[in-house]
Design a protein around this nucleic acid. Structure first.
Length: 406
DNA sequence: ACTGTGTCCGGGCGCAACTT
DNA sequence: AAGTTGCGCCCGGACACAGT
């Protein structure tokens, strides 16, 4: 089976990758720096001379061309069928069709189809299908309720003593969490859910590779267009939304705006844009404790958090919430996060020390001096804006030094 | 009584460092 | 080189509680 499909690797992957658009891949602020991947001139492979024009083309290249030929492990990234299937889903239906027709032989198409049928059981929802491939047992309970996906049923006790069920449809469209008003009729909730799904699809179709600040316009337009198309006003379905920005590094969770009804779209989008502006001062993307500080220094992270925190407080207090309580809550969340932030810094410090022997003594001094105390992270906040010796040594004057530059 | 809102939680995916 | 691990990001769902 894999043998059938391996025929597509090599000469064809460049052309394929050019044709598949992928979210994030071309997003300018995303920096890709990893195994054999260098960022400088477009998307260039560090192991050969291949130069792709998107992250997808490069990752396809890495997976297919540099895949070890003796690998027998069927992990997600090692399974050709799963990988091809995953990437095809990133393309639009037209592009997918063209890719399949142009680049796969009949035998390969049949092989892929067999694999999809074997692993997918013809389920409509791709996401659950994918989960099912990975953990067959764990997801079965949810698949039984496939029809209910995206609709929450709530049981309420009425004054008469009887109970009644209400349904609320919800969905995510990028950073926006959408939900509708609760209704008694499940069929109505299903229609609401379809509307939300349509908005979601519209947003994801148009948001490929765009900057986060443009997402708000795309979202607003999607709500308008889809509502007009299905002849249901946002008011009819009681559409409301909240937007989120990632903040796990600082508080272990996302930050979100209050919920805004569709009538207050502009206010909600303004809040979202404000949070984005603060959040996007530093790297946004997948990273771990080792790679985090390749992109932003702790001081930069701290400065971004200070601003993000301020914006969050402003937005919620404008919505009528008590500022002191909000501050207390943020501090509580922050406190829970301090140990892992500290370990990230230590991991990064050790890594930089190993990579930069000439400054070893200085780094060790900094580590010994600061490592044992949680106050290190707290003190960063105070150091922001000052030219601290610590920051100057590790990350250079502008805090933009990377391992690759060392 | 009914509805809207915020919080919390769990699970999957992707990436990169680490270990074998 | 291959496999493992840890973690951030993303998403969906459940629930309690306050407001109308």
């Amino acid at each position: 089976m894999s043998a059938d499909l391996r025929g597509i690797e090599g000469s064809r992957h460049e052309e394929m990758s050019r044709m598949i658009p992928v979210a994030q891949a071309s997003t300018p602020q995303r920096k890709t720096l990893g195994r054999g991947i260098k960022r400088r001139s477009a998307f260039r492979c560090g192991l050969c001379s291949f130069a792709g024009d998107s992250q997808l083309s490069l990752s396809m290249h890495m997976t297919q061309v540099h895949r070890p030929c003796n690998s027998k492990v069927a992990t997600r990234s090692r399974c050709i069928e799963a990988e091809l299937y995953r990437r095809l889903r990133l393309a639009s239906p037209e592009q997918r069709k063209e890719l399949l027709l142009r680049h796969l032989s009949q035998a390969q198409r049949a092989a892929l189809e067999r694999w999809i049928l074997a692993n997918n059981k013809g389920n409509g929802e791709m996401k659950d299908a994918r989960r099912r491939l990975l953990k067959p047992c764990a997801k079965m309970a949810k698949l039984r309720h496939r029809r209910n996906a995206g609709i929450t049923r709530r049981c309420r006790r009425l004054a008469s003593g009887n109970t009644a069920f209400f349904y609320v449809a919800h969905a995510s469209a990028g950073p926006f969490r959408l939900c509708t008003k609760s209704v008694r009729d499940f069929g109505v909730a299903v229609r609401h859910r379809r509307l939300l799904q349509a908005i979601k699809q519209e947003v994801s179709a148009k948001a490929h590779g765009c900057m986060p600040e443009h997402l708000s316009q795309i979202f607003a337009r999607a709500v308008q267009e889809v509502s007009a198309r299905v002849r249901q006003t946002p008011r009819d379905v009681g559409l409301s939304f909240a937007a989120t920005v990632p903040a796990k590094y600082w508080i272990g969770r996302e930050l979100h705006t209050p919920r805004y009804s569709a009538e207050r779209m502009e206010a909600g989008l303004a809040a979202f844009r404000a949070l984005c502006r603060a959040r996007d001062q530093v790297y946004r993307g997948r990273s771990n404790r080792y790679s985090l500080y390749m992109f932003s220094s702790p001081m930069e992270m701290e400065a971004a958090w200070t601003q993000l925190r301020e914006e969050y407080l402003r937005i919620w207090s404008e919505a009528g919430w008590d500022r002191k309580e909000l501050q207390a809550r943020l501090s509580r969340w922050e406190a829970c996060r301090l140990p892992s932030r500290r370990s990230a810094v230590l991991a990064s410090t050790r890594r930089l020390r190993d990579a930069s022997p000439q400054s070893e003594a200085q780094l060790e001094e900094a580590e010994v001096k600061h490592a044992p105390s949680d106050s290190l992270l707290v003190s960063w906040g105070r150091l922001v804006g000052k030219k601290s010796r610590f920051s100057a040594q590790l990350w250079g004057p502008r805090g933009s030094r990377r391992l690759a530059d060392i």
